[in-house]
Amino acid sequence: MEIEKYEEELLNILESNIQNKELYVSTLADLNPKAKGVIMQAYDTWNELNTLDSESPSSSMDNSFYESLSKFDNSRSEKSDMHIVPTPKKASKIFTLQRLGIAMTFMIGLALGGYLDFFGTNDSENRTHYAVNNSGLVKFASIEQTPLASDRIKGIIGTKSHSDLDAKILYALNDVICNDPSINVRLSAIETLVLFWDNPDARKILIKAIPFQNSPIVQLELADIMISLEAKTSSENWNQLLSSNQLEPDIRSQLENTLKEIL
């Protein structure tokens, strides 16, 4: 479909933000007397279309959208959570025990393989080896470099294959647990650190992260972990969290109930 020169000029006027469009259009029409009728009629139609008012959608559209968004979020969480299903509470207990089982098996395997210092062997050589290999892994958890939560989770899961966590990885996991906006990413980092509970730095990070948690899911998960591991040294951090006025009342009472053995 070819377009005449005057038509193009008219459309450019209509598209522009100039104030006095009518003057420009009538000038264009005067310069093209044969097409004057077409130009003015097209201009009138363009203006008349403005009489068709905008309408507002109903509130039921909003309700349906937010319901769908919530469902979408839940289905996404289920996919990325894998076996870290934090609620309901009974399920959480089961999965915590499962995790501990996996952790123990893993630790025994590592011990039998001579990677851990359970039997007084010197593993400094191994530590150096991992520190070198892990130097690039700190990127796995950086939200700036890994904007997708699923990629950060993959990166975190990847660290589980190592026999120990070097300082860089521990620092990155600490950052994740305290700052990552995604609950699933935080839970993955917590799960990884539980596997390395034998490492005093991993323990310290997990315990120190307690007061920084604002998600009830993470708070309850950490409480279950601390109880399972009988981590009495975490009591001060729990008290700090429990004294926060931002804690939801229901969650506070649930936490107090769960943690009564170590508080």
Partner: peptide
Amino acid sequence: KRVQSGDTQLMGILYERHKTSLFNYFL
């Protein structure tokens, strides 16, 4: 960018910003 990194709930803000214009387009 935040939604892409996992904060899908923030899609609500974009929805609020564009829902009326999109609704009128379809209408």
